[in-house]
Amino acid sequence: MKSGKFWAWLVFALGAAYFFIPLIATVEFSMRMRRGEYSFDAYKVVLGDARFQATFGYSVLAAVFTIILGVLIVVPAAYWIRLRLPQLRPIVEFITLLPLVIPAIVIVFGYIRMYGSNSPLPFLATDTGTNALLVIGYATLALPYMYRAVDTGLRTIDVRTLTEAAQILGAGWGTIITRVILPNVLIAVLSGAFLTFAIVIGEFTMASLLNRPAFGPYLQNIGANRAYEPAALAIIAFAITWGCMSLIQILSRFAPRSANRPN
C-alpha cells in the first residue's frame, strides 16, 4: 500500500517535472534580458513591437472568422446527423479526423495547386481570396475539435424529441436551430471555439506558405533572430492557450442543465 503510493507520487513528480522544468526555465530565461537582475524587458519589447500587434491582431481576426465558419458548418451538420442520419456518424467521424492525419503542409500545397491565379477558382489571385482560403484551411484544421465538442454537446440533450416538440409548436428549422439546439449546446460550441482559437493563434505552416502576416510566422521569425524575446513570446502564447482552456472549464459550469429524464 505504502510503496504503491510512493511509486504513484514518483511518477507524478516525474511527469510534473517534465512539464514544468522547461516552462520555468523559459520564464526564467525570458526575464534575463537586463544583465544581473530579473526584468520584464523582453515582454515590453515584444508587446511594444508594431509587428507583434499587427500579426496578433490578424490572427485573432482569422480565428474569429474560422470560428464562425466552423460553427456554421459543424452545428447544422452534427445536428442533422444525430437527427436523421445516425448511420452516417462513423463515416463523418472518420472524415473529421482526417485533418489530424493529413499534415497541414499537404493541405496547403493542395490549395496552392487547386486555387492558383489561373485556376477556375482563383482564391490566391487576391489578398481577400487568400485570407478567405486561410480561414477555410484553419476551419479544416479545427474540424476534429469543433465536431467532437459539438457532438458531445448534442449527446446531452434529447435532440429528436426536442426537435419534434418545437416542430409541433409551429417552429421551422431556423427557429429550431437558433432557439432550441444552439442554446443547449452553446457551451460545447464555445469550448470548440476556444480550441479553434488556440490552434489558429499558433498555426505556422498554412499562414507561412500562403504568405499571410499571421502570428505564427512572426513567432518563427523572432525565434530565428533574437535571444530573449522568443522566450517571452513562447510564454505569452502559452498563457493565451491556457487562458482559453481555463475559459472552457469555467464556461462548462454554466451549461444549461438537462432536465430530460427519458426512460
Binding site: 440533450i157 416538440a165 432550441v180 443547449n184 432536465a259 430530460n260
Partner: peptide, 9 residues
C-alpha cells in the same frame, strides 16, 4: 411527450 421534452434552456 412521454419524456416531457421541455426546452432545458
Amino acid at each position: 411527450f412521454q419524456a416531457y421534452a421541455l426546452f432545458p434552456n
